[in-house]
Design a protein around this nucleic acid. Structure first.
Lengths: 208, 208
DNA sequence: TACCACTAATTAAACGTTTGTTTTAATCAA
DNA sequence: TTGATTAAAACAAACGTTTAATTAGTGGTA
């Protein structure tokens, strides 16, 4: 009985295929072939193709809430330190798991599975709340400009990195990065982190 | 002979459906029903579902090259003026045509139709070249900081607005905008424009 | 150890739908 | 009459899922 191996194999191959193509563009036969299992195994282990898809996203969507929370509530960090830590964290988190974030990306932009979309948003929203409070705190303690648009700062950070990760082929061409692999290299990560840190510092800090 | 009317009706309904759902999630029967035409009409007028999809995107993707070019090469505008004009132009362009940009968005993030993706990128790339030169010119004439990351500035602007337009349901929740309609209101557009103008001014200008 | 019963895992084949597309025939305008 | 337009029906192919049969593994009993 090799349940675990085969189930894991299906998830691994499904992640690759669903990252590259739409839900409906990937057939259960494609999945079974890629994972080297019988077609019936997908229904057997997951119930249906859709449940496999949901289980895949949910299982791969690592829990980032505790990290964000600990950054946001760390008394040893200044407001600007916290912001820098969030930039670092999100850049690495998204770049380390490009496949699942491509899937999430596409899921958020369609109405194909509204319940799943709602679930994803609710998970993301928790972090948004922490970071939102963190930025407002920076305003309150005099670190950040009063008239800064914190809502757009947040979505700017998420959107931009998610966009690069979600459309790597396009992003390479736009950023003159030769290969998709280089997009996920430490070197390019450093470039993104530096960009956002400087960008937000200039925009948010009073003495700039 | 009502060719034009029926063909136009198909395109109008297809735009709505393809904006909301994936290519494969929309069937030709859905399209025919929405447009109140016979199923055979799609093949008759467009050749195939895929050609309809391509024709739709290409026809709706208004030509923005001439506008960007005229901004970038206008001798009456300073470097910072040009940047502000580009922010205004892109915000309005994307907000005025959310449906097609949702489709483009999804198309750029998948490998379902590589030739179409390549075509879209080539069209977008022209603008990128103009804006890239414009920003480098700002460095050369001493307006912008030498060490600013112009590649990321460009993709940041495109990505963020495209992301908001492409995932309006999600963006509303993140930005505390009550309804999707309000996302495309003049008021919110103004907010986006102001944000990016201030953001890039602080980041790019030397005296900041 | 050997045998049995039982459960879980795996397969190939078939299921009924739905898919995009085409055919055929009828209808319409010029 | 000619050629474009419409409609209904039919097409084969692909879809996700299920069935039925077989194999593999487990635990208990003698």
């Amino acid at each position: 009985m090799e349940q675990i191996d085969k189930k894991a194999a299906i998830l691994i191959e499904a992640e690759k295929l669903f990252a590259e193509m739409d839900f409906d563009a990937v057939s259960v036969r494609d999945l079974a072939k890629a994972a080297n299992v019988n077609i019936a195994m997908i229904s057997y282990y997951f119930g249906s193709k859709e449940k496999l898809f949901e289980e895949l996203i949910i299982s791969r969507m690592a829990n980032s809430q505790t990290t964000i929370q600990s950054i946001a509530t760390d008394p040893a960090l200044s407001s600007i330190d916290k912001l820098m830590a969030v930039v670092d964290f999100y850049t690495d988190r998204l770049m380390n798991n490009p496949n699942v974030h491509r899937m999430i990306n596409r899921e958020l932009s369609s109405s194909n599975r509204p319940e799943l979309r709602e679930l994803l948003i609710s998970k993301i929203e928790t972090n948004k709340t922490y970071i939102g409070k963190m930025l407002e705190e920076g305003k309150a303690n005099g670190t950040f400009r009063e008239d800064a648009d914190m809502g757009l700062v947040m979505i700017n950070l998420f959107a931009c990195i998610q966009y690069i990760v979600g459309s790597p082929y396009y992003s390479c061409k736009m950023l003159d990065v030769p290969t998709e692999a280089q997009l996920f290299d430490p070197e390019f990560r450093k470039r993104i982190k530096t960009y956002f840190k400087e960008l937000f510092s200039h925009y948010l800090l009073k003495n700039q």
